[in-house]
Design a protein around this nucleic acid. Structure first.
Length: 294
DNA sequence: TAGTGTTTTCCTGTTT
DNA sequence: GAAACAGGAAAACACT
């Protein structure tokens, strides 16, 4: 089969992609300009340009996730529910509190937070020059509300460039149910999600993050049944464009996006919702979408 | 370098 | 008829 990929590369990977759409925790971003990046881990997903005191719960989790990632610590090793707190509460935690909440990882987290508090890292320019205008910017609704949100939600994004990022941590990775390590190459995988997450955020996480941030979701996707995890695309092409922008792929369409979504059926990240167009449902291997997950 | 995981792309056929 | 869905096939790409 002759495949044409040249169009995808119309935007050089090194191009500066603006990061307008923040995500709560799972979308690690990298430097958004073309500045040299370290190989491997370079992106910082937690809100480093905001003082920890002002972090939201999501941002706290994000910081947790990235800190663990940075130190290659399995996220399952600490109870995230112990950090169901905002930045203010986080900053008021003592060393003992951290140890109590995160066990052996506590000191590390405490140290990291202390460093963050005092290192003057806040204010690092996260967002590169917003000089690249893409098709997504033309949408009437998606971008402006996100931009307005910068004051309160600066760090991560739903439309960052594809980042050389380490695997996402278990917080967003389903528990493997039936290990299926052997399968033909170049076939859509059917194994449960593992830590390997070469492209940063997974599509389903991207979708989830839009859903979880109504204020940053200007009518793109909406919950049909929040408790059941059923949601519906309102502006399917706009979502696809956003996803494409995030992946630096201007040729992304809803058709392609939906194909990727369908692959999630086998992995039970999504479940079919028969007879309803543009409607999907999170499956048992999708995590982080429930209200109780927050 | 091979293997793996996660898309991405293209396609054909079906359903709404 | 158009849009969306379904799923096979294969390639791309980042990571281990």
């Amino acid at each position: 089969m002759v495949r044409q990929t040249s169009c995808i590369m119309s935007v050089p990977p090194s191009a500066s992609i603006d990061s307008h759409v923040p995500a709560p925790w799972s979308a690690p971003y990298s430097c958004t300009d073309s500045s040299p990046m370290m190989p491997g881990y370079t992106g910082r997903a937690w809100p480093q340009d905001t003082q920890p005191q002002f972090w939201s719960k999501f941002q706290v989790w994000e910081w947790l996730q990235q800190t663990l990632d940075m130190h290659q610590i399995d996220a399952t090793s600490i109870p995230f529910q112990n950090f169901d707190i905002d930045g203010h509460q986080l900053c008021s935690m003592s060393f003992q509190d951290f140890t109590q909440a995160a066990g052996s990882v506590g000191p590390l987290l405490f140290q990291n937070l202390t460093d963050l508090k005092w290192s003057g890292q806040y204010g690092i320019e996260i967002f590169g020059p917003l000089d690249i205008k893409t098709e997504v910017d033309e949408f009437q609704c998606p971008i402006p509300p996100f931009r307005e949100d910068f004051s309160t939600w600066p760090p991560t994004d739903l439309v960052d460039i594809k980042a050389p990022f380490p695997s996402s941590v278990a917080l967003t990775s389903p528990t493997p149910s039936s290990p299926e390590s052997k399968r033909p190459q170049s076939r859509p995988q059917t194994a449960p999600l593992k830590k390997h997450n070469p492209r940063g955020t997974h599509l389903w996480e991207f979708i989830r993050d839009i859903l979880l941030n109504p204020e940053r979701n200007p009518g793109l996707i909406k919950w049909e049944d929040r408790s059941a995890g059923v949601f519906r695309f309102l502006k399917s092409e706009a979502v696809a464009q956003l996803w494409g922008k995030k992946k630096n792929n201007s040729s992304m369409t809803y058709e392609k996006l939906s194909r990727a979504m369908r692959y999630y059926y086998k992995r039970e990240i999504l479940e079919r919702v028969d007879g309803r167009r543009l409607v999907y449902k999170f499956g048992r291997n999708a995590q982080g979408w429930r209200e109780t997950d927050k």
